[in-house]
């Protein structure tokens, strides 16, 4: 490069044009190459048929008070808890300052359907499924869910209270289509 520049020193205008052309060509080549990579990367993202399965509808009337079930949404479980008044009260009397990921219980349920807690069944630590759906399973010190992988404990609002998980159990997008039919996704 240095030699070329020297050789053309007598013609500064020509040199500038040449350099400009060359740099533009290199830049366009590089950008073009980078753009070719995107289809490859994006092909790894969820495919159309996977996305098509991304909503789930179910009837909530079968879940008795105090009972918890899990339903499948996008290949993973979602916990549905019909909470007892005691469980709701326990969730609501917690001070926000005590929480690692501060959220009130009201923010995590649908207004008017406060007794139903619907949260993702995926531990926010490393993706294991916490225990606590069945009565026979451990629910941890806060009466919610207990993750067997690394000991994260969630309360009756699905909020992280103890252990390594950084965030509360996620609340998926929920819509009550009727009084008893819920759409997730």
């Amino acid at each position: 490069m240095a030699n070329t520049a020297h050789a053309h020193a007598a013609d500064p205008a020509g040199e500038t044009r040449r350099d400009f052309l060359l740099h533009t060509t290199i830049a366009m080549g590089a950008v073009g190459g980078a753009m070719m990579v995107w289809p490859l990367i994006h092909s790894m993202n969820p495919a159309a048929d996977t996305l098509a399965l991304s909503t789930t509808e179910f009837n909530i009337s079968g879940v008795a008070e105090g009972q918890r079930i899990s339903v499948m949404w996008r290949g993973s479980p979602v916990f549905v808890a019909h909470r007892t008044p005691a469980e709701i009260e326990a969730a609501r009397k917690v001070q926000l300052s005590e929480l690692r990921d501060p959220q009130t219980d009201e923010q995590r349920v649908t207004k008017g359907k406060d007794k139903y807690l619907i949260v993702s069944g995926i531990c926010t630590h490393f993706g294991c499924i916490p225990q606590g759906v069945k009565v026979t399973e451990p629910r941890g010190e806060f009466g919610g869910w207990f993750c067997p992988c690394h000991g994260s404990q969630y309360d009756t609002s699905g909020r992280i209270r103890k252990g390594p998980a950084p965030r509360n159990l996620a609340v998926p997008p929920i819509k009550f289509l009727t009084d008893t039919t819920v759409l997730i996704g």
């Binding site: 993202n45 996977t50 993973s76």
Partner: peptide
């Protein structure tokens, strides 16, 4: 992106 879905699955 790594999963190609919303959990570890066929993709």
């Amino acid at each position: 992106l790594l999963w190609g879905g919303f959990s570890v699955d066929n993709p």
